[in-house]
């Protein structure tokens, strides 16, 4: 068992987990943060995407000890209190979530994009979400929602 300290959504967290746990397993089973989804669990689907020190990464392939001392942002950390993040609001308005399983990962990929590029082109958005599989929507509503959120973040 390892004692690991990391910052999750702005809060310093300490948890005891085995060294072979991934960041995803620590979030879900150690910290009770089940927003990040365990999809393929081998790096194909993107449902487990979180933002690690500003970059979108796959938490299912991140050994927990690699996250020690670093800043993790998950879907639970996007909203400000009861106020949803513009991405979440725009996903709602555009109907960009259907079954919703891929949504937390897509929101995290999109949040990392908007943090580094406030005015992304449609192609930038497509590229940033190219590692997130959605089998319901066909992506167009998702791209619309990210464009809408980018415009609101700039306003």
């Amino acid at each position: 068992m390892e004692v690991v300290r990391l910052t999750v959504n702005g809060d310093e967290r300490v948890c005891g987990v085995p060294a072979h746990y991934t960041l995803l397993e620590t979030l879900r089973y150690g910290l009770g943060l089940t927003g990040s989804k365990q999809g393929c669990d081998k790096g194909d689907c993107g449902a487990c995407t979180v933002v690690l020190d500003g970059k979108a990464v796959l938490s299912c392939l991140t050994p927990i000890l690699e996250a020690e001392g670093r800043h993790v942002r998950t879907v639970e950390g996007l909203a400000s209190g009861v106020e949803p993040h513009p991405l979440q609001d725009e996903f709602d308005l555009h109907g960009a979530a259907q079954c919703g399983f891929c949504t937390p990962g897509i929101l995290c990929s999109a949040a990392a994009l908007l943090d580094r590029e406030p005015s992304p082109s449609r192609e930038d958005i497509r590229e940033a979400l190219a590692g997130n599989l959605c089998r319901c929507t066909g992506y167009e509503k998702i791209y619309d929602a990210v464009e809408g959120a980018a415009a609101r973040c700039r306003a």
Binding site: V57, T62, S109, G131
Partner: peptide, 9 residues
């Protein structure tokens, strides 16, 4: 290579 998250890693 792969997708954006995997290229970040």
């Amino acid at each position: 290579v792969a997708g954006p998250q995997l290229r970040n890693m």
